[in-house]
Simulated scan of single mutants.
Amino acid sequence: MTPNISMQTLGAVVLAMTLIVIGDAAGKALTADGFNPIFVAWARFAVAALVMLPFSGLTRAELRAFVDWRIILRALLIVGGISCILTALKTEPIANVFGGFFVGPIIAFILSALLLKERASLGRAAMLLVSFGGVLLVVRPGFGMQVGMGYAVLAGCFHGSFLVATRWLAGRYRPRVLLFSQLAIGGVVLLPFCFASMPQSFDLQGSSLILISALGSAAGNYLLVRVNRHTPANVVAPLVYSQLLAATIIGFVVFGDLPDSVALAGLAVIILSGLSSLWLAGRPVARA
C-alpha cells in the first residue's frame, strides 16, 4: 500500500518549500546587488552552520559522519544545487528558474525506484512525464533558451539526487546531524572558490539578506530531513511542487517578475501534474 499523506506531512513540506524560496529570493536580491553567486552560496552554508552549531547536539561518535563518503556525497549534491540555482537566479525570473528546477522530482522519482527500490506506479510515472512537458515549456530548449535556465535544470538534477540521498541516510543519522553536516561541508568546499569575490564590507541590507538566505534555506532543509525519516522520497517529491506557487508569488511581489504566457502555461502544467501525482500517492493500492 502506498503511504497515506497526512496533513502534518503536507504542511511541513509546503512550509519547507516556502522557506527555501524565501532563502533563494534573498540570494537573488544579493546577486542583483552585485554579489557573486558562489560567494552567496558559501555565505548561506557558513552562516547557517555557525547558527546551527550550538543546537546540533553533536557527540564525539557522530563526528565520524563527516568522513562518511555518503554524507560527503549528499553534501556535494546540495552544494551543486544551491550554487547552480543562485547562478540561474542572477539573470532569470525566480518562477522560471523554479520551473526549470522541477526536473528534480522526476530525477528523485526515478532514482528512488532504481536505487531505493521504492514503489513506482505507472500513473505517477505518467504524471511526471506530463510535468516534464511543463518544464520544457518553461525552459524552451532550442528556442531561445538562456544559459541561466540551463543552470536551473542542472540545479534540479542535483536537488532530485539530494532528495534521494536524504531519504537513503535519514534512518542512519539524526536530522540535525544531516543538516549540520551539509552546512559545514558546504562551507568548507566552497570557501576556496569565493576568495576572489569576497566583499570588503557589508551594509545592513546585505547582512540581513545573507542571514535570511542562510536561515530560510537551513530551516526548509531541516524540515525536509524530518519528513524524509518517515515518508518515501517518491511521495515527498510531488509535494515539492508547492515551491512553484511560492516562487511565482514571491517573484512578483518582491521583484515584479511575472512569467510570459508560455512559461505560465508550463508552470500550470507542472503544478497540475504535481497535484495529480500527490493524489495518486495517497490512493490505496487494490490487492489482487
Results as ranks from 00 to 15, higher is better:
Gly274Leu: 07
Ala75Asp: 05
Gly160Met: 02
Arg176Pro: 06
Leu86Met: 08
Ala263Lys: 01
Leu280Trp: 03
Gly133Lys: 01
Gln200Lys: 08
Thr59Glu: 01
Ala170Ser: 04
Ile85Ala: 02
Pro175Leu: 13
Ile210Phe: 10
Val285Gln: 12
Phe158Gln: 04
Pro238Thr: 00
Leu178Asn: 03
Val21Ser: 10
Gly134Val: 01
Phe193Val: 07
Val40Asn: 10
Ile270Gly: 03
Phe45Met: 09
Thr248Arg: 07
Leu89Thr: 13
Ala16Asp: 01
Asp257Ile: 02
Ala65Ser: 10
Leu89Val: 12
Ala286Ser: 09
Lys90Pro: 07
Phe39Arg: 10
Val79Lys: 05
Met52Pro: 04
Ala61Pro: 15
Asn228Ser: 15
Arg174Ile: 10
Val164Phe: 07
Ala246Tyr: 09
Gln182Leu: 00
Asp24Leu: 04
Leu154Ala: 14
Val103Ser: 02
Ala29Glu: 15
Val147Cys: 15
Val189Phe: 15
Ser161Arg: 00
Ser197Gln: 10
Ala155Met: 12
Ala219Lys: 04
Ala113Leu: 13
Leu163Tyr: 13
Thr9Ser: 13
Ser277Lys: 10
Glu62Phe: 14
Val188Trp: 11
Ala184Trp: 13
Val97Tyr: 12
Leu178Thr: 00
Pro284His: 13
Leu136His: 05
Met52Ile: 08
Pro54Gly: 02
Asn36Ala: 10
Glu118Ala: 11
His230Val: 14
Gly171Ser: 00
Ala46Tyr: 11
Ser273Arg: 02
Val225Leu: 09
Ile270Ser: 08
Leu73Thr: 12
Ala12His: 04
Ile271Trp: 06
Pro284Val: 10
Arg44Tyr: 08
Ser131Leu: 15
Thr31Val: 03
Met17Trp: 00
Ala25Pro: 15
Ser277Leu: 14
Ile22Gln: 09
Arg124His: 08
Tyr241Asn: 10
Val177Ser: 07
Pro105Gln: 00
Phe98Ala: 03
Pro3Leu: 09
Gly256Phe: 11
Phe98Arg: 02
Gly216Phe: 14
Val147Trp: 12
Leu136Lys: 03
Pro175Met: 09
Ser56Tyr: 04
Ser6Asp: 02
Asn96Met: 08
Val164Leu: 05
Ile5Tyr: 02
Ala268Pro: 10
Ile71Tyr: 05
Leu50Arg: 03
Phe35His: 06
Ser207Gly: 13
Ile110Trp: 14
Phe45Lys: 07
Ala43Gln: 01
Arg74Ser: 04
Asp257Ala: 00
Arg44Cys: 07
Leu129Lys: 07
Ala165Gly: 02
Ile270Met: 06
Ser273Tyr: 03
Ala88Lys: 05
Leu116Val: 07
His159Ala: 09
Leu128Asp: 06
Ile85Gln: 01
Arg64Val: 01
Thr31Asp: 12
Pro3Phe: 15
Leu89Trp: 08
Arg176Met: 15
Pro199Trp: 07
Leu137His: 03
Ile38Phe: 15
Ala16Ser: 06
Ala29Pro: 12
Tyr222Leu: 04
Leu154Trp: 09
Gly171Phe: 01
Gly216Cys: 12
Lys28Trp: 06
Leu169Tyr: 14
Asp260Gly: 14
Trp168Asp: 01
Gly104Lys: 04
Val51Ala: 11
